Amino acid sequence: MVLTQLPAGTAATVRVPATSANLGPGFDAFGLALELRDEVRAEVCAHGVRVEVEGEGAGRVPLDERHLVVRVLREELTAAGFAAPGLRLVCRNVIPHGRGLGSSASAIVAGLAAARALLAAAGAVSETDEAVRERLLVEATRYEGHPDNAAPAVVGGFTIAWTRGDDPAHPAGVRTVRLEAHAQVRAVVCIPVEELATSRARALLPATVPHADAALTAGRAGLLVHALTAEPALLLDATVEKLHQAQRAPAMPRTARLLARLRAEGLAAVVSGAGPSTLVLTTPERVGDVERVAADGWRVLACPIAATGVSWSPAGG
């Protein structure tokens, strides 16, 4: 396959929100975009790869072809029949790594969006915003294996995502709906120092669950849609689930203890993604209660729900 080289100097800037998946009962389906954004500036160079990282991950992530954004960006260009002779990436990261806030999904979406923006900047493609986002969702799901983090990173807001046929191995049928959260809902994340690999958390899940637990969780997932969009007073009841949080507790005992304390105070706390961060869905007057309960050993951030997903500028501005 002969690839067309993009001209040196072609540049793009991409900004991607953090995400919180599951939201309790919406396991592998529900997600929320948070106004905490990584920024990546990508520029085509004559040769070589240079990656600069500021903030989260600095000094820890690879600064060459192994960098996740570089890998995804190059693969997306290749799929379109193009190549970059060299790349310079400047990554300004604020999304914590390994904490259940969608950092890997955000990096994947950033790489995909940067590739499409570079192609557009070079005049190689002309695509509608809707077409780009549909492709980003499908390809990000292919990398991630499931769309719960990819969907809010791509479209923003509160999302419900699924694959037609319920087969994540064939994500061409990935779909999502974006819903508006109630104006009074606030998202507060409690971030610990320790990290947890998603693969380790997922390995703790049982192969089967009792029918009663599945039925309860399905009912609360339906209630959560109503609570998040129309009646925040029901958030505590709506975030009960029986499929994954207790099963993963041995891998994050401090998170489990904080979760119990927050819920005992009437706060709708859940594990954020695979953890170990905790997400609290609450109202403005109770944000201070979250800060009080999680005072010691936790970084507490009140994050607005991001109204938009990934954004990109083909000119690099």
Rank of each mutant, 00 (worst) to 15 (best):
G275R: 01
E76A: 12
A33N: 10
L23G: 06
H244Y: 02
T282P: 00
V44T: 02
A21M: 09
H146P: 11
L258D: 09
L6N: 03
A256E: 11
G26L: 07
G9W: 10
R286D: 01
G297K: 13
G266S: 05
T283I: 08
A221I: 09
G98V: 11
P171A: 05
G81E: 14
R200G: 08
R254M: 05
R261D: 09
R186K: 07
E43G: 01
T239D: 08
S126M: 13
Q245F: 02
V40T: 14
A227N: 01
E265V: 08
E195S: 10
C91T: 08
Q184W: 10
A110Q: 06
A140F: 13
R88E: 14
V280K: 01
L77Q: 01
A84H: 04
P314F: 15
R74A: 11
R66Y: 08
L216G: 08
P314V: 15
V290P: 02
P62V: 02
C303V: 12
V270K: 00
R292E: 14
L23S: 08
R116A: 08
P250C: 10
E231A: 12
H146T: 11
T163V: 15
A201M: 09
D296R: 15
A294C: 12
A122I: 00
P206T: 14
P284W: 01
G81S: 13
E180A: 14
A268Y: 05
V188H: 02
A251M: 07
L259T: 09
H170N: 11
G123E: 07
I160P: 00
R15G: 10
I305V: 15
G266R: 03
G288K: 09
V189Q: 03
E75K: 11
R263F: 04
A122C: 05
G9T: 09
T19V: 13
I305K: 03
G219Y: 13
R186N: 04
V44Q: 02
T4F: 00
A150G: 10
F158K: 06
V154R: 06
R292Q: 13
E139C: 05
T282D: 02
V94M: 05
P206S: 12
A18T: 11
G222P: 07
G24W: 09
L68C: 05
A306M: 01
R299W: 15
S103H: 03
A238K: 05
L216S: 11
A246F: 00
Y143C: 12
V193M: 05
E285C: 01
L101C: 02
P232I: 00
V94S: 04
V14Q: 03
M1W: 10
V280L: 07
V188Q: 02
A117N: 06
A307E: 13
P168G: 09
R178Y: 04
R133V: 07
R200K: 14
L281Y: 08
A264Y: 02
T198E: 11
G31F: 07
G222A: 15
L235G: 05
V53Q: 02
K242F: 04
A42N: 05
A230F: 00
E144G: 11
A114F: 09
A274E: 05
R41T: 15
L228W: 00
I305Y: 01
P250H: 08
A110D: 07
V138G: 07
G31W: 05
R135S: 13
V300S: 15
T308H: 14
E231Q: 09
L196R: 04
